[in-house]
Nucleic acid binder design. Structure first.
Lengths: 349, 349
DNA sequence: GTGAAAGCGCTAACAG
DNA sequence: CTGTTAGCGCTTTCAC
């Protein structure tokens, strides 16, 4: 492919018999330049089909006007919604987004962060992978004074801002509802305890149980991943143990779906034999039978808050005190987590 | 924020008493440089925490190693899946992706294409918005000799490659199945006819109907958007006309969901009173009651084919003959589009 | 094998 | 208001 050489500032300048600088300023609407010159320059730029060269601009101005984003997944309701909000908020603020996807792989994540640093992004928004434990790469980001905001899935690193969901409070609220509806045998199919969202949702569960003097059976707490398959496996483990709870709190929506799949496979009816509640949702929840009662994560707020936070940090000339924004959850009532029947059918093997 | 000045090639060069050029070449594994020098350079680069500057690299090499992507939506099963495939395929080929989202807005789309041109992306993958009619911006891309691949939603522009789904064939296949299952009164809630996917799916419907000598009732063909709401409205229009079909072919999965919602609202039972089939799917289809029988679009193939096509074009030094890749659909049988009952309950107002 | 010179296209700082 | 001067950090010749 032989590309035509691009039109540059000099081409415009030459045609107008002015200097590059004048053109550069005019194009950016700098107040230095008179209205007439500006409009003249713009006209010629248009005629010549001028397209600015961001690489050159970034190089000489030492900023990219871009926020780097690293997420573990895209084809996932939660993340795709958050990402959409991030794009929109950045667009509204005249910033570009450089999005990368780690595929839940810590090594890729590291590589992506390096790429984004090489792009000289002005700031970074990261939601870590399930397996990320090492914070070295993020320390490196901070040592370069690049504003870093962890979103939803965070790593405890000094100097970073955070936007999270009130996982603990939301989880506790879910359990409270279950208890008030008469359930006592409450299990939790949870995520990894090493990651904040797994840990905090678990803690919310524990806290609410303790508050009501309910015992936490060790085999009713299962830790694993955040996917459908994890929910499926988790349910099967409970089921095969022959020691079934009457209620399950699922750490994510996909995990709840996995529970649905497994339950239907072995003939356990939801919510009659076993009732369920979960953290998070999906656009199709209303079509699910029974539709899940869930703890809603305001994905839009999350994404926007993350962008606002990096921008705030980027705009700061002085020392910046990292912030922690916690977005509140909302309990949304649907068809599950209903009042316990007087004599529930026992779901035994 | 005062950033520390970044480590540059010169810093490494100075420390090693060699020239920038040597360092640059060594870092890129150029065969010019001896093995020892190379490993020495790499070691020092590591120690100093060197991060290459892509802007500088792009500027001087005149290429960005990046493929620009413009899609109308992210929080949507079809697109998020395709995007994930695009990212993965690009990653495998050592390319970066610059993703932008038009939000189904033609003006934003234009702006994004301009931004991507300014970034000097090596190639472009675009899925146009519902409302895109003007191809001017894309002609501009071509005039710059930037390889352009339209994906799924295409505009007929000479010189562009295309990756599409066999919309017509898939639609025809769906109708054939309906007919073979005994349905005759078949409606189509379709997309805009001005856009290929809307047009071709509609044509597949028409073709199959004609082939079997079935009449196409004008009020049984409704054109609109591709969202849930369009399906809802479409159904309601049919319903209120008092002239209901016994079967609906929905142009997208969301449209089918809209039909589900509307039908359940007015008490029309699917598939008993009214049967449905649609184009596309979602990960949660298996949880839908009844699960939709659908024409599967291989999102993974689509995304990968698009990337492969741009890369092929980018790699071509000579004149490149644009290609059109058509990805085949697969009919997936679930709980709808079943054999028509002998005497179906009439769904009347 | 290595390096010196010459820019890529733009902006920042300052001078007029 | 406009222009001059000097790079930004890197790669590309092309000598040595």
């Amino acid at each position: 492919m032989n590309r035509k050489p691009h039109v540059t500032l000099s081409d415009i300048a030459r045609q107008l018999n002015v200097s590059k600088v004048t053109v550069s300023k005019a194009l950016r609407g700098h107040p230095d330049i008179s209205r007439e010159t500006t409009s003249l320059v713009k006209k010629v730029a248009e005629e010549l089909g001028y397209t600015p060269n961001f690489a050159a601009r970034n190089l000489s101005s030492r900023k990219s006007n871009t926020i780097g984003v690293v997420v573990p997944k895209i084809a996932h309701f939660f993340f795709s919604s958050v990402i959409e909000a991030i794009y929109d908020e950045a667009f509204n603020n005249n910033y570009d987004i450089a999005l990368t996807v780690s595929q839940e792989n810590a090594e890729r994540e590291k590589k992506h962060v390096e790429t984004l640093m090489a792009m000289r992004v002005d700031g970074l928004i990261v939601s870590i992978t399930q397996e990320t434990r090492d914070s070295a790469i993020f320390e490196k980001v901070l040592s370069r004074n690049i504003p870093l905001v962890f979103m939803d899935r965070v790593l405890p690193v000094d100097g970073t801002s955070q936007v999270t969901v009130d996982d603990k409070g939301g989880a506790a609220q879910a359990i409270e509802l279950a208890i008030s509806n008469g359930y006592r045998k409450i299990a939790h199919i949870g995520g990894y305890k090493e990651i904040n969202i797994g840990k905090n949702r678990y803690e919310g569960y524990v806290e609410a149980m303790k508050k009501h003097g309910l015992p936490i059976e060790p085999d009713w707490v299962i830790h694993g991943g955040f996917g459908e398959d994890d929910g499926y496996q988790g349910f099967m483990k409970l089921y095969k143990s022959g020691h079934m709870p009457e209620f399950i709190f699922a750490v994510t929506y996909p995990v709840a779906l996995g529970i649905y799949a497994a339950a239907s496979e072995v003939g356990v009816r939801i919510p009659d034999d076993l009732d369920v509640i979960c953290f998070g949702s999906a656009s199709i929840n209303k079509f699910l039978k029974p539709a899940l009662t869930y703890i809603d994560q305001p994905t839009d707020n999350l994404g926007r808050a993350a962008v606002d936070l990096v921008l705030e940090h980027i705009g700061e000339t002085e020392e910046y005190e990292p912030k922690h924004v916690e977005v509140q959850t909302v309990l949304v009532m649907r068809d599950t987590c209903i009042k316990k029947k007087a004599a529930p059918a026992a779901a035994v093997k």
